[in-house]
Design a protein around this nucleic acid. Structure first.
Lengths: 350, 350
DNA sequence: GCACCCGGCTGGACCGGTTTACCGACGCGC
DNA sequence: GCGCGTCGGTAAACCGGTCCAGCCGGGTGC
């Protein structure tokens, strides 16, 4: 049963069928659907009608085989094994990318990878197999091996990160150094003198940049060496780092976090240790997401339009695909959004 | 400059080049790369060597054009306009899917859409353009229009949701009704008599199921009608709903949430209103993510292996693509993970 | 010794589009 | 009347693979 002789499988409708129905050649249909000149108004209409009646749309593999154009862009995100779910940042970023892709009817090929090595393999496979026309690189490391690898492949890409890490690729970056400086100055202006930082994964480009900026800003304020603890960006490590800081002899009165998840974790560690925020300790998050407004107190943050950032990156990728020369584009600098987790330190606290 | 006559563009290396270099026909190379019999060990080795030297891998569009097989699966996620970033749930689910796809070297085509209508359009375009071999459907509504739409298209799909919503498609579901009942019984056993629920978006299949189960369980416990407030799953609405409940005359002593974001929001609302958790009010989350362990107190939750769920769904999709008959598969039932946010109500509270 | 089978491999048709060379008809200027 | 350009359209080559019919040579069975 099922494969009786006589029950023809319903052959896929192709451009040939549409052409036949409209009484024209395949070429005419192709020209029409790529709105190129050479087909009269009347014929176009007939062709569109025929296509609609047959429910036809072009087979994208066939199309990209012949015109060697691909309407898919790739994004691989390294997800440290322990952080199964992604942080809000990635999701907003993806949303932003999508918002641009959709209006060009392009698609996003997403892959979660374990590390940079694996990502290189994925990108290579994608490019070799012509599955993507270009890619987006995130979370650049210092001396990131992906950059030379993609260059060798000739894979068009845009780097979401500082130009110094992009080495000739088009990049979109935010001035984190300035933002960090602003954050520190704000805390200093509130009266804080012991400021610590819970930083992201060491080796990550923006971690390095922020760390340097933090140390410079603290020194400039005459507060000695700034203390930074490194983490892997996970909530657990954020909690651990906060616990270490708050339990130390010269407990800081203000902590700057490298993302929002860790700041949320910090908040609960403070509560757990019987410290009140912001009276005993001020917390300042990075990457302001919905989360920062759901806590009590709400989290002050260096906010940053991640959605718009993603959109701009996608936009620039299309420019690159259109042969634009590589360039560094600056996105808006993260700006302080003061909320309930920052305040002057208790009197008497130095 | 750049396009000087004489500087041949470096023509893409094709199967023909590999064949020539290995001294065989295209067919042999094809057989080798799809490891099909008919090529001797020695020849295979020569072919692989040639391919490696030339840095060749098959052009996937060409391949899928001729064998009409597609190695990409589609997933469209409806993201209510206000929730720009996605909830942890989606990300873990995507991770789970990926974990299965990767071992078949398949890719995930991801699209964020505004609503079901748009998703139908996307799925149709994907299928018509043969961009995906099959799709995964999430967040099913009661009488979801996607189901008949995909059936009409003949698009192979797996539904992540209750079989009653899948109407003949293969589905993977968790027994939420039982889980809700367990949650209510647990709270009742702790001594709670006024239990409320902050539910998800009305119209969503699992919302309906959970709501019914909740009401039945509450009634069964002799606690009258269970009160449920509907939300859109966002933190803001979770906060609003919690505020409404805690401000009402017969304030509940326990609240069951439909996801973890809202439970986190609820926690901070309680704090804001000067109520202590769990002494004054117990909170119980759903979809246990990392987040639940980062709060203070930590959130009790109905935990659920979302990663594994995604993996199973992907797995079943491959079965469907291999012509398996439609079936309903049950994933493990969410189980109670008691943490710090649930406890017996204060003495004296009825 | 002959028919037959079988593993190993080749040649070429084919998938469904795009692109290009070319063609007929028509209008225009001289 | 003739050359010429333009418009609307066609036929066929081509993209880079897969797949199938068939060929060749060496066993095997009898």
């Amino acid at each position: 049963m099922g494969s009786e002789a006589g029950t023809e499988p319903p052959r896929r409708v192709t451009i040939r069928d549409v052409a036949a129905r409209a009484g024209v050649s395949k070429g005419a249909v192709s020209l029409t659907f790529n709105d190129r000149p050479g087909v009269s108004r009347a014929t176009r209409d007939r062709i569109f009608a025929a296509a609609r009646e047959l429910g036809w749309s072009p087979h994208l593999s066939a199309r990209s085989l012949s015109n060697s154009r691909v309407d898919t862009v790739g994004l691989a995100i390294a997800r440290p094994a322990r952080t199964l779910g992604l942080e809000p940042w990635s999701m907003e970023f993806v949303s932003g990318i999508e918002s641009v892709l959709v209006e060009r009817s392009c698609s996003l090929l997403l892959r979660l990878v374990r590390d940079v090595r694996e990502e290189i393999a994925v990108q290579e496979a994608w490019w070799r197999g012509r599955q993507v026309g270009g890619s987006i690189l995130v979370d650049l490391r210092d001396g990131d091996p992906r950059v030379p690898a993609l260059r060798r492949l000739g894979l068009p890409a845009v780097v979401a990160g500082h130009p110094s890490l992009a080495d000739g690729f088009t990049s979109v970056w935010t001035d984190d150094a300035t933002a960090v400086t602003e954050a520190v100055r704000y805390l200093v202006a509130l009266g804080h003198r012991r400021i610590a930082r819970v930083g992201g994964a060491p080796g990550l480009g923006h971690t390095t940049i922020r760390k340097a900026a933090f140390e410079a800003a603290v020194r400039e304020a005459g507060l000695g060496e700034g203390r930074t603890l490194a983490t892997d960006f996970s909530g657990e490590e954020g909690a651990r780092a906060t616990r270490a800081l708050l339990a130390s002899a010269d407990r800081p009165t203000a902590i700057l976090y490298d993302n929002d998840i860790m700041a949320v974790a910090g908040l609960s560690v403070a509560a757990e240790m019987g410290l009140s925020v912001p009276a005993d300790v001020s917390l300042l998050a990075w990457d302001d997401s919905q989360l920062c407004q759901l806590t009590h107190p709400t989290l002050s943050a260096m906010s940053h339009d991640v959605f718009g950032y993603g959109a701009q990156v996608a936009h620039r990728l299309f420019e690159v695909l259109d042969q634009a020369a590589p360039r560094a584009h600056q996105a808006p600098t993260p700006a302080l959004t003061p909320r309930g987790s920052t305040a002057p330190p208790r009197r008497g606290e130095p």
